[in-house]
Amino acid sequence: MIAFPTTPTAAVRLAGTIRAGATDVEERRRSGRLNGDVVDLRDLAIGAPELVSLSVSSGLSLGALVRVSALDTPALAPWNGLREAAQTLATPQIRPVATVGGALLQQNRCGYLRHPDLRAACYKAGGGGCAARTGDHLRHALFDTGACISVHPSTLACALIAYGASYGVQDREGTRIAGALEGLYGDGSDALKDHLLPAGTLLTGVHIFEPPRPAAGFEPSAYARATGRVWAEWPLVEAVVRRTTVGVVFSVGGVAPVPLRLRTAERAFDSGATVADAVAEECASRLILDDTRYKVQLLVGLLQHLLERTASAP
């Protein structure tokens, strides 16, 4: 059954898979990978306009139902890495449909998880193992943080985390700011979940409270991804680099089962280490998967590329 609640309060009382832009959920339903009830958010904005609003003041607020293409606006110049991330992800036909909330809470793309015949060998599909670990994981994680080694697919999460974004939720208790977006994903040790949002909870939006630093003028930041082709490809590695007055930010995706900041590398770089050494230091503190070790080099190249691009303000 598909329900079309008209208020967030009604939505959180319904059980089922949340569907917003439907760019992934619809394919999973049609291919039989996803069964059961659906809670479609199509009509939600009528009673909750904040869900579709993008507002810029000293910070940035994005409603969960804001379309990804709406982020491609000059108003986002202070958060250039976020804007570039939104310009790059998926394809031009997906971006006007996909929502911020959907992008943050999407299911990961591991070929074992999504193969109809391989689900018994995937934790996230309810199975009892990780076939990718013993099988093909060329595009999987570099950092081995838990039983599942697939990477988190959310480019927007990688970008928002770079700016210290928080997320808001609504559940039966009401609405609130739930904490830092990084916390929505945990540390990558939970093999069963793409994110830690409890059932019966609706993501209402994300907020960057912290104004860009330096407050005068723009803080340079940029997004890029490493792929074989130019467009429309899941990244091998992606990153936002921010240069702030208090230090550099390296927020990366394609590296671990969760989007994350490389804080060890950030500190090392701020203390004068080269990018290569900073990344090496980060990797020394991590468990590394052998077959994806090439991502170390990619990470170095990508961060170097972004440091060049952010060397001077736009």
């Binding site: 598909i2 439907a22 619809e26 479609d40 006007p96």
Partner: peptide, 10 residues
């Protein structure tokens, strides 16, 4: 322009 294949009719 949108892709129709993953567009719910609703």
């Amino acid at each position: 322009p949108e892709v129709a294949c993953i567009k719910p009719a609703s």
